[in-house]
């Protein structure tokens, strides 16, 4: 029962990745693409969490923590570069 719910969450989240990817492909401005990447990385964190729950391994959460704490640095680097060079 719980597994069915978790699989449902996984399916919905992976549809979310695809929909956000459409914005990444279309995005007229660079900042649109950056926001799409930000959303994709948040969904990716959730996907890692879902995989950890499915496989019942606590250590997989460490990977998700790495993305949670470091993912925004890339976004800041890109936006700083777009604004006026590094």
């Amino acid at each position: 029962m719980v597994d069915i719910l978790i699989y449902t969450a996984m399916a919905i989240s992976s549809i979310g990745v695809l929909v956000a990817l459409v914005r990444f492909v279309k995005g007229p401005e660079k900042v649109d693409r950056i926001v799409a990447v930000d959303v994709i990385s948040t969904i990716g964190i959730t996907l890692i969490l879902i995989l950890a729950t499915l496989m019942r391994r606590e250590i997989y959460i460490d990977v998700a923590i790495v993305y949670a704490i470091l993912g925004f640095i890339g976004v800041i680097v890109v936006s700083r570069f777009i604004k006026r060079g590094m």
């Binding site: 549809i15 979310g16 990745v17 929909v19 956000a20 914005r23 799409a36 959303v39 948040t42």
Partner: peptide, 9 residues
Amino acid sequence: LLVASIGLY
């Protein structure tokens, strides 16, 4: 999360 993606679109 799906709502976030659809809104993004």
